[in-house]
Simulated assay, not measured.
Amino acid sequence: MMPCWPLKTLPILTRAAGVALLLLVAAVAHPADADTPIRIATYDPGLSRKGPGLLLRDITKGAPQVIAAAQVIAAAQPDIILLTGIDWDADNRALTAFATLLRDQGLDLPHHFAARPNSGMATGLDLDQDGRLGEADDAQGWGQFTGQNGMAVLSRLPIAGVTDYSDVLWRDLPGNLMPATPDAIARTQRLSSTAHWDLRIQTAGGPLHLLAWAATPPVFDGPEDRNGRRNHDEAAFWLTHLPDAPFVLLGNPNLDLIDGEGRPDAMQRLIARAQDPGPRGDWQPPQTGANAAQRGDPALDTASFDAESPGNLRVDYILPATSLVVTDSGVLWPAPDDPLAPAVEAASDHRLVWVDVIYP
């Protein structure tokens, strides 16, 4: 019988063990019809707080923002969803509680995975070299406590295994753009500001690889452009780690290729290696303030940021392999008179993005 781990953290598999498990997965039939589209989503639901345990408290209390996030996800009815922007705890109590809340909203996603993110992971070093230790900027990824602003995957389909690349050092990425860095820091600094995961999902047609990440914003630094360089390299990592099997790149690369700051080369090369369905929202807010000067199609935007700067941007992506058949896609951005609109506004400044694919 194929093992699955409902509502528990999955074991991290070695790459060799993952290959062996894929062979087992291929031999196991799944009751779902292979011709039925799989809805894959990515969303930053705003489930990060300023201290450990606070997210679980808010979920348990039924805080309005948490309820709104659950309503948005339930409305989209994904088969698989990557959450970027959810706090991690060692026992996955918050994620388990949120999965229960989703089930109460009519969406049962019994399989999930979460692991300690790099955000908030203390290094003991002065990474930003400002003469002070123990600050959020001195963690592997910006964070006030370990687990802040992590990632999680919830799925209707079994998760066959995970390869976690989050401990890869930035300096070890071939062709990296890491600026000049003291050796002690270079020997410690990881590439991932949050995480890089390859999750293998068991589908009726075979294993589907979800290549998930959430990158640092390419701003909030100085002339050395450390964040811009790291943002670029977090996307560039996947250029050397695309599997031969069908895959979906998804997450929050934190980069608008037209209207945002940053270095677009790596994301452009990823898109060239996959396909961009260009998910679109049903409604866009008035294009005033910073939005009025933008050149990109506002229907592609996935986040509603400050109206004066930077405005609304496309920072959340789902990029299926060319071997997958895309049947539909969208950005959950309803008009103000839509019954779901209040929940979308209350939950997060990001919008849920979804793509329907058929396994080849």
Rank of each mutant, 00 (worst) to 15 (best):
Q77W: 07
G51K: 13
R93Q: 10
L56V: 02
A26G: 09
G124I: 03
A75D: 12
A69H: 01
L55R: 03
D137M: 10
I81S: 10
Q129D: 03
Q144K: 11
L21A: 12
A17T: 13
R103E: 12
L101P: 04
P78Y: 10
L55F: 02
A97W: 03
A74I: 07
R39A: 10
E135H: 00
P31E: 15
A16V: 13
A32V: 08
A90H: 04
T42P: 03
T36C: 15
L55P: 03
G18P: 01
M151D: 08
G141E: 00
T60K: 14
G120W: 01
L125G: 05
W88F: 15
A26S: 09
V28K: 09
A99K: 01
A34T: 14
D58F: 07
M121P: 06
M121K: 14
D33K: 06
L24C: 06
D137T: 13
R116Q: 12
T96F: 04
L47Y: 00
P52L: 09
Q77K: 15
V25C: 15
V28S: 14
D104K: 10
V72H: 11
L95Y: 01
G51A: 14
S119I: 04
R39N: 09
L125A: 06
R57H: 14
A139D: 02
R15T: 11
D91M: 08
L133S: 11
A26V: 04
A94W: 01
P52V: 08
A114L: 11
A76S: 14
G150W: 00
T123W: 07
L55D: 00
A27H: 14
P52C: 07
D128R: 03
T96H: 04
A74Y: 02
L23G: 08
G18L: 12
G62F: 07
I40W: 01
L24A: 14
L55H: 02
I73A: 05
R132F: 11
L125K: 05
F113K: 04
P110Y: 07
G141H: 04
N118R: 09
L23E: 13
A63I: 08
I67R: 14
L109T: 03
F113N: 09
G46N: 09
G143S: 02
D130E: 07
H112R: 12
Q129T: 08
L101W: 08
T96K: 12
R49K: 11
N92C: 04
Q129S: 10
A122M: 11
P78R: 06
L95N: 00
A17S: 08
A32D: 10
A75V: 07
Q148N: 06
V153S: 02
L95G: 01
H30E: 01
L82P: 08
S155P: 14
A20V: 06
F98R: 02
A68S: 13
G106Y: 10
P110R: 08
A16S: 15
D130H: 01
L47E: 00
G124V: 03
D87E: 00
V19P: 13
L24F: 11
A41C: 07
A63S: 10
G124C: 07
L23C: 02
D137L: 12
Q148F: 00
T60V: 10
R57E: 14
D79C: 11
L47F: 01
E135C: 04
R15A: 13
A17I: 02
S119H: 08
L95C: 00
A68Q: 06
P110N: 11
G85E: 15
W88I: 06
